[in-house]
Amino acid sequence: MMNRLDTLFKNTCKVMEVLLILIFALLVLDVLWQVFSRYLLNRSFSWTEEFARFSLIWLAILGAAYLSAKREHLSMDFLYQKFSSAKKKKVLLLIEVCVFLFALIVMVIGGFNLVYTTLDLEQLSGTLRIPLGYVYSIFPFSGLLMMCFSIYHIAKINSNQITE
């Protein structure tokens, strides 16, 4: 069971890595294109800026889920370092519960309601004319991923495979 979960986790991370690299590469090309079209072709395309902004949102939010998977969000372990290992385990579990709850309440429920509202109201973006709900959908989606990663980490902490 755990083995299969490990494989699933690894593969999910791989897919996210590929996505993040692609989004970042597109972002670079998009803004480069904006600069060159402005200076060399002397015209500007209004979609380049919007595309860049939306890509940044995806990069940041999907990246945040990836950081959750890798447990690489910025955190302060000043006090934590002084705890005994039994206490550390409890704290680690508590951290995952906190992440899980925030992901569930704000990112999944709040984010889904936001996506639902903007889709329901047919809000389109200014120039690309894509529904804003699609852009925002990365938010509840990443929240869902974060919840899964938290559960996975909790299992790992319980079986003492994560100790720090």
Binding site: R43, S44, E49, G126, T127
Partner: peptide, 18 residues
Amino acid sequence: NNQMAINMVNAMGGSATP
């Protein structure tokens, strides 16, 4: 950054820059 403003400036001969 809206289409009508962009169209208007372009129609008048300028180069609209959102």
